[in-house]
Design a protein around this nucleic acid. Structure first.
Ligand SMILES: NC(=O)c1ccc[n+]([C@@H]2O[C@H](COP(=O)([O-])OP(=O)(O)OC[C@H]3O[C@@H](n4cnc5c(N)ncnc54)[C@H](O)[C@@H]3O)[C@@H](O)[C@H]2O)c1
Ligand SMILES: NC(=O)c1ccc[n+]([C@@H]2O[C@H](COP(=O)([O-])OP(=O)(O)OC[C@H]3O[C@@H](n4cnc5c(N)ncnc54)[C@H](O)[C@@H]3O)[C@@H](O)[C@H]2O)c1
Lengths: 216, 216
DNA sequence: GCTATGCTGTGATTAATGTAACGATTGCCG
DNA sequence: CGGCAATCGTTACATTAATCACAGCATAGC
């Protein structure tokens, strides 16, 4: 019932709130949070409403409480584990970035088919051959796959993931994947993103107006 | 007037059409293109209409002509050049990926503030100190900046870009940037994307229905 | 030739998403 | 103690995006 866009914003709010908490801020108004997230105050209030948290007109939202509410809403109670498939240029950067972040959503294993990579350890994640995906998935209870293999291999790898019981895929290969409706796929197509920026940069140069207020 | 979503799909169509052209296919129907792009046929026709190309009811769209039309629409006549700032884990992967792709949209320079990286060459792109950004931008006519520096540095780097006359930014730092309305920013927030996948993977597990048809 | 077929182009319609408006509430300050 | 100022919660509205549905047309087959 809650839309994808709302989930994305909640994830962003949570990170911004974490920074506020670190800075010792106890409470925050919708317009303050809106400003740092680059959205309207009404949008913030709507999103907060969606997770059932309530602020007070005088103090706004209690930072710690709101974080807790977002946690309860977004996180799985027993945590979730992810695996990365394809430890190439991009894959290595992703492991460096995602490993050791939130304990509730951790990267625990990586896979590749290159024998030179198998057996190595990447930021605490052992690299196994891709044939080991299904058994490893079961033993470590992996819920999410991150695909960073060449485009030509992506569909085959996705099939392996689906067969092993994965229900969420973050796909960096520039190929729309074919999966059953029970699997959620998020495609990150960086070529498309770059071309988008190129196009709108051009229209910015010409007319000095932006096509639409930005956020993601 | 043409929306961001439409531009993103056109970029995807172009790549898919290129594959068709390589395979020797001369013409394609909206429903075929729609299937590989994971959108509806009506959507394809609408998008094609937006760039002023016309197909024929009998043959559909001529692949080579449609590619040409998308090129004319998306590409700058004299090409566009991009620079990357921050040659760390992610930056290096991006250079490897983006360098030497389309000549119409090429990565030509990289910047960092680490003296150990300055002077090195990354896939044909010389690495300069970030202080050299403005002069290099002018001499190479760089239109687009890709930001891959730590979050704490991102705003400062964005300011440098804006001051140097950049109108398009692809931002990988997990920070909403503060820029004037004359600059188009596309934020790629991978933490948000991963958390989104985690959330919907969970809801897939529970109820076996997807929240919305997927695409990006 | 003539009809049947299957596609494109596009106005009409529906769905999704975001914004605005405003009553309700809370504490503050005189 | 009672208005004032500010903010939340929520409903109504506006905007944007996607889909439907069908007229119009080109071709193939007979
Ligand atoms: N490098 C980037 O910045 C970047 C940017 C955007 C998209 N991508 C996409 O991400 C993917 C990976 O890019 P990359 O630059 O890391 O490529 P890469 O060639 O450096 O790495 C690919 C890795 O996948 C492994 N691999 C290949 N086939 C496999 C299989 N069937 N099973 C398991 N592992 C397999 C290879 O051994 C290699 O280690 C590609 O689809 C690419 O288009 C990369
Ligand atoms: N690695 C990933 O896969 C990944 C994923 C998502 C987001 N990100 C984001 O991308 C950014 C870069 O990530 P990374 O993993 O490559 O980090 P990194 O630390 O490996 O690289 C950062 C690079 O930026 C350079 N740098 C720092 N300050 C600079 C400045 N002021 N001017 C110019 N160069 C400067 C550093 O010298 C370094 O080379 C971060 O904001 C990170 O949050 C990275």
């Amino acid at each position: 019932m809650t839309s994808e866009k709302t989930i994305a914003r909640l994830s962003l709010y949570r990170r911004l709130l974490g920074q506020l908490a670190d800075a010792g801020t106890a409470s925050v108004y919708s317009h303050q949070l809106a400003k740092s997230a680059r959205v309207t105050p009404a949008q913030v209030r709507r999103d907060v409403m969606a997770i059932g948290y309530h602020g007070s007109p005088s103090r706004g939202y209690m930072v710690a409480e709101l974080i807790k509410s977002i946690d309860d809403f977004l996180d799985a109670p027993q945590g979730q584990r992810a695996a990365l498939i394809g430890v190439g240029n991009l894959g290595r950067a992703l492991v460096a970035y995602f490993s050791g972040r939130r304990p509730q959503l951790s990267l625990v294993a990586v896979f590749d088919r290159d024998p030179k990579l198998v057996g190595k350890n990447f930021h605490g994640c052992p690299c196994s051959p891709v044939e080991q995906f299904a058994p490893t998935r079961n033993s470590l209870d992996i819920a999410i796959a991150i695909i960073a293999v060449p485009a030509s291999e992506a569909q085959a790898v996705a099939d392996i993931c689906v067969k092993a019981g994965i229900h969420g895929i973050l796909n960096f290969a520039p190929v729309p994947l074919n999966v059953p409706a029970t699997v959620y796929v998020d495609n990150i197509d960086l070529t498309v993103e770059l071309e988008k920026v190129a196009f709108f940069a051009r229209s910015m140069n010409r007319r000095k107006t932006r096509p639409a207020p930005r956020r993601r």
